[in-house]
């Protein structure tokens, strides 16, 4: 597992991908940070909600190549015929992408630190919001990894990831409009509803379990997709 993790992490940082994505993410955060500072009382927490939205664009690009590329280049054979199990391979890859995301998130912590010099305290609410953000990121990345397992084309993987996450983000807005059973389902897959709890300062067990389960389910589905393809492919 750590072999795959190390290799993936290296390939993120040997290419410009990680730097560009981290840079872009921090830049966008900074752009949103600026008006908040002007209008609010030095509280960074609301910016985190916007950062969740920015992730929608960042994560599919971060994860698009993670499995699709192996399939396209034929290196999948190497991974699948090695004594390392498929679960470990997928988890290793997920963790590598998650580490890049973690670094991104850590960099944005610069903003509340800057604020703290000018009297904006690092509140427990902010810490809670960061915990929520890290959990949200895990769900996003697990879905991104899943969409990368569906195709050998990176662009298609990114589009699937983007559209899927978009639906999940908009689900709670759509849910009341659709109503009925489908509305309930949409409410269930809504990633944002639960995230709002965090940045409102509520650190409930429910949302934590929800995000972890969501992540686990999509990692499991990724493994199933690869297994299934091995049994049926030509």
């Amino acid at each position: 597992m750590w072999a795959v993790y190390k290799k993936e992490l290296n390939s993120y940082f040997h290419s410009p991908v990680a730097y560009v994505l981290i840079g872009l993410f921090v830049l966008l955060t900074a752009i949103f940070f600026y008006p908040y500072v002007l209008s609010l009382f030095g509280d960074f927490t609301p910016v985190l909600s916007t950062m969740g939205f920015i992730l929608l664009f960042i994560v599919p690009i971060l994860t698009m190549r993670i499995l699709a590329e192996d399939r396209k280049n034929g290196t999948e054979v190497l991974l699948l015929t090695s004594p390392t199990s498929l679960t470990k391979i997928v988890v290793g890859k997920f963790l590598a992408a998650y580490t890049v995301f973690g670094i991104m998130t850590a960099v944005t912590f610069v903003f509340p630190i800057i604020l703290s010099f000018y009297g904006g305290p690092i509140s427990p609410q902010l810490i809670g919001a960061y915990v929520g953000f890290l959990l949200l990121g895990a769900s996003f990345i697990s879905f991104g990894v899943f969409s990368s397992s569906l195709t050998e084309n990176q662009i298609i993987a990114a589009v699937i990831g983007f559209v899927g996450l978009m639906i999940m983000l908009l689900a709670d807005t759509l849910a009341p409009a659709v109503g009925g059973f489908l509305g309930k389902v949409l409410g269930w897959i809504s990633l944002m509803t639960r995230y709002n709890d965090f940045y409102n300062g509520i650190l409930g067990l429910g949302p934590i379990v929800y995000y972890l389960t969501f992540t686990g389910v999509f990692i499991f589905l990724t493994i199933r997709v690869i297994e299934r393809r091995r049994w049926s492919q030509g």
Binding site: G74, L78, T81
Partner: peptide
């Protein structure tokens, strides 16, 4: 089993030594 498929399963953006070290880790 050591397997050499028809297309050598190499990562093009790695150096030879990085790649072989990675495979060593992968094979424990």
């Amino acid at each position: 089993i050591g397997f050499l498929p028809e297309q050598p399963p190499v990562y093009k953006d790695m150096t030879v030594s990085e790649y072989l070290k990675f495979v060593s880790d992968l094979k424990y």
